[in-house]
Amino acid sequence: MFRPFEKISRTTFLTLVALEAIVFLSLWQSLPAGLIPSPLKIGEGLGGLITSSLLWDNVLVSLVLTLKALFFSVLITLLFSYLSVVPFFRPIAQFIIKCRYLTLTGLIFIFTLLTRDGSQLKLSLLVFGIVPFFTTSFMSVILQTNAQEFELCQTLGYTRWQCLYEVIIVGKADQVFEIVRQNFAIAWMMITMVEGLSMSEGGIGTLLIKYNKYNDLVHVIALQTVIFGLGLFFDYLLGILRHWFFPYTKL
């Protein structure tokens, strides 16, 4: 267990995770009381949050917004990534990739001018933040495509457009799920920021900002735990969906 590259079973791994978590929480609990709340207090706060409709209403608002943003981001990413194999469109895809170095600060005002309401503003900001990361990941998948995939397609007598359909659109469809899974965290991370811009509709980010404003660390960390748990759940769900839609990914 302490040797490099040692293989362990899934059960052993899960036991390790549980044990290490228990050790960490025990150490945390044993620390002298201070500004940082103890795990038990956070647990109490979490219990209170979970049983309240306040949490679930706000989670729902955030989830709807995130899923909408993911949907539009995937559409835009796929469109420009697929087109990137056509030289004419490659500069556009390259520009989108480089946009990940941009910060939203300063651009928010432009987005405010371009959108009609707070809801649109949040959605467009999320999409603007997510698309460069999605495109970067998907473009890297396209660039790493085995040349033999195109060659086999060509030797079967398919045209270049048909090869694009078979090798990139059909062949890399499973990778779209993987990219969404890997980059879901970005959307989840940005939600707090964009929800803070228009708080009237609520959302998990709004809730977090409110708790943070009053230094309610118990609920801040409890809420972070919920966010963390939801993130893990979606990671797992997307993994399952990928295997379900594309059985060959399990092999």
Binding site: N146, Q148, E149, E151, L152, Q154, T155, L156, G157, Y158, E166, V167, V170, G171, A173, D174, F246, Y248
Partner: peptide, 17 residues
């Protein structure tokens, strides 16, 4: 032209999907 000949690559490559 590519496609005129049936080609069998050394590693018998097939579409994994």
């Amino acid at each position: 032209h590519a496609g005129d000949m049936g080609v069998i690559f050394q590693n018998y490559y097939q579409f994994g999907w």
